[in-house]
Design a protein around this nucleic acid. Structure first.
Lengths: 187, 187
DNA sequence: CGCGCGATTGAGTAATTTCAAATCTAGTGG
DNA sequence: CCACTAGATTTGAAATTACTCAATCGCGCG
């Protein structure tokens, strides 16, 4: 039934059926429509979300009103305002749907409970966090050492499935350039 | 004896004396001198390092030969080529000392062992990883949404202890601007 | 004292932004 | 099925920002 969840977790750890029962019981399934917000600015962040279907983004509006994309999320990716979630603070980042989406979510309390009851799940989330860290580090290096064109080509190569689902202006914002500049890269 | 290590870990988890014995037995203490490398490019990365004394940096040399600072590390900070370490791959990042340093290090195998034997330590490293992720996310936002001057002022405010230990040209590289630009900010 | 390292300054150049307008496209309601 | 519209992309031109290259300056350490 919760086949998606099971497969996702078993890419990293092995769980018994009983253990998985507990895991599944702590996740809730939710559906959202395009342009709908999962998290808006300045609100408590209860959950982190694992995407089963659809595309989402997390973004930050700066003091001049410009939107900066922190993250895209495709199926099998996690998304939230992780800073606010882990510090149990108010959000400074918004999360919304680029396409209709179906997600599994888990609350801070339940995540904590899960990690305490089943240490293997704590391992799962440590590994996920490590890889998230590594990905962000790569992105910082890319922002600092590469031209807009190189960053765009790397993006296309690294996430070939994204281009068909995400408007170019959002990709521009993710890459840290204006949409005009991105548009001019191949002209 | 390993008082530093104990204090550092107990900021996040509580360990019994026996548990701490095991922890301490898996860390090794090392000393390095200014300009000495802990990790050089294209080598296996055996360890991650917790700084007791001194200042270090991790940096990446791009295709044009320019150095980009990924991270500084002061006492109580961890440093390594985390990407290479967690993927057990060759380093693409170098780690070296800005000042003479004393560090505790632990190998991949021992870290794994520790997390398996004492689940609380896995929690410790998950929390550390989460906070590392959050810090990198903040840095990405800063790189994308702020001017060089704002980034510099944020840096000074966020890490007031660093300015006395780290040459401005390295700070410039960390902030993603040329040393000349940083020098011109207040003129 | 001299050398190496770090910081500064100047001038010209390259890259990207901003603002404005035009064009293209996909989805929606009639 | 078409027309309309909002969203997305492209293009142009001017302005801005930061970079590069080069030279100079300052200083602490051996």
């Amino acid at each position: 039934m919760e086949d998606f969840l099971k497969k996702h977790i078993q890419e990293i750890i092995n769980l018994t059926d009983d253990e998985f029962e507990m895991v599944a019981s702590l996740f809730r399934k939710q559906k959202f429509r395009k342009r709908q917000f999962l998290i808006q600015e300045n609100q408590p962040v209860k959950d982190i979300y694992l995407i089963e279907k659809g595309f989402l983004k997390s973004s930050f509006i700066d003091s001049t009103g410009k939107e900066h994309i922190l993250q895209f999320a495709a199926p099998n990716w996690w998304i939230s305002d992780f800073a606010a979630f882990f510090k149990q603070d108010l959000s400074s980042v918004a999360v919304d749907c680029i396409e209709n989406a179906e997600v599994y979510c888990i609350s801070y309390k339940d995540l904590d409970l899960l990690c305490t009851k089943i240490p293997k799940t704590e391992h799962f989330f440590r590994v996920k966090s490590n890889f998230g860290y590594i990905a962000l580090q790569q992105r910082i290096l890319s922002l600092m050492s590469k031209s807009a064109k190189e960053r765009y080509e790397d993006f296309l190569q690294q996430y070939p499935g994204f281009i068909d689902h995400i408007p170019k202006q959002l990709i521009a914002s993710y890459l840290g350039v204006s949409r005009e500049t991105l548009s001019r890269l191949y002209s």
